[in-house]
Computed example of a mutant assay.
Amino acid sequence: MAGHSKWKNIQRRKNAQDAKRGKVFMKLAKDIYVAAKEGGGDPETNPSLRLMIEKAKSANMPNENIDRAVRKATGNLDGVSYEEIIYEGYGAGGTAIMVEILTDNKNRTAADVRHAFSKNDGNLGETGCVSFMFDRKGIISINREEVTLSEDDFMLEVIECGGEEYEVNEDTFDIYTEPDMFKEVKDQLVSKGYSISTSEMTMIPQTFASLGAEDTKKVLNLIDTLEDLDDVQEVFHNLEVDEEEYEEYVN
């Protein structure tokens, strides 16, 4: 549970950065495009597309943008075809980094990612070099005011719904699931009357790396550089940064 809390803090800061950069809609549109391209444009019969649309709506993405991404995928309006790639590597101090990519030009993207690693004292590695350090999990968040049960009773309800565990944060209860149970747990919680604030599939590090100030700054610079690339959808890492260190970095 403690590891999840560290991940949650990292994720919250990352999400805030994405929103500031104004790139979140573009990244979500690519996710919607790929989901619709692979499974069709009807969210009722395409769970991946339904999840991406829910994620987009929770980020206040306009319906027009969502519809346009679906139409492009199903009608090939712009002739663009995106490819999904995962790059793995190391930041300063041996920090594990995973980068999820959606690109229409993998040669361009490979060069951009490699350059981001090299200029920030990192190394792009082979497939599988760090992925074993992460667990793929579903995370479903429910606002705390939605839960009227005691924590013990809510824990039993989460288990009944198929969830692995949950943790209490300042504003939410976060339920963790195995990937193949993600949709079932979410549907079960909705059937019990809960409103889901956010839900997503993610990569949670098994262990975290705590570095000195200089190496921490290099890794944060690497993460920022990667997230600034248009083709990068997500950056997962195992760097542990406390609030004081992070505030010093951003300021």
Rank of each mutant, 00 (worst) to 15 (best):
A29H: 12
V235G: 10
D171M: 07
G93L: 05
N169T: 09
D31T: 00
F134T: 13
I10Q: 08
M203W: 06
V241R: 06
Q11R: 12
D153L: 04
E170N: 07
H4A: 10
A19I: 15
D242R: 05
R21N: 09
G39D: 04
I86S: 03
N169A: 10
T148D: 04
S197N: 13
I66W: 10
E247P: 01
Q11S: 12
K217P: 04
G212C: 07
S191V: 02
I97V: 14
Q11M: 09
Y90F: 15
E234S: 04
I139M: 14
F208C: 05
D42Q: 07
S48A: 08
E145M: 11
A73L: 03
N221Q: 11
E244Q: 10
V185S: 01
V158T: 02
S191R: 06
Y33A: 02
M133A: 15
M52I: 00
I10F: 12
G163R: 08
E38D: 02
M98A: 09
N143H: 14
A209N: 14
M201I: 13
F117M: 10
P47M: 09
E44F: 12
G163S: 06
N60F: 10
I86D: 05
L102I: 00
S197Y: 12
M98S: 10
E178W: 01
V219T: 08
K217M: 08
T177F: 03
K23R: 10
G93V: 08
V24G: 04
E84R: 04
F134N: 13
I85R: 03
A92V: 05
S81Q: 05
E184Q: 08
N251Q: 14
E240L: 14
L51S: 10
G128F: 14
V232E: 07
K106N: 12
E160D: 09
I53R: 08
R50P: 00
M61A: 05
G94F: 03
Q17K: 07
D171C: 01
P205M: 11
A209R: 13
V24W: 11
I10D: 10
I32S: 02
G91V: 03
G193C: 01
R50E: 15
Q188F: 02
Q206V: 07
G39Q: 06
D112G: 03
S131I: 15
V99H: 05
S48I: 01
M98F: 01
K55R: 13
K218N: 05
K137T: 14
K217F: 02
N143A: 13
M201N: 07
L226I: 04
I53N: 07
E200Q: 10
L156A: 08
S118A: 15
N46M: 04
D121M: 14
D228Q: 06
K218L: 09
G163E: 01
N60E: 13
M181F: 00
N120Q: 08
G40H: 13
G125A: 15
D104F: 11
P179N: 01
D224I: 00
R68Y: 07
K20L: 14
S81D: 04
V185N: 01
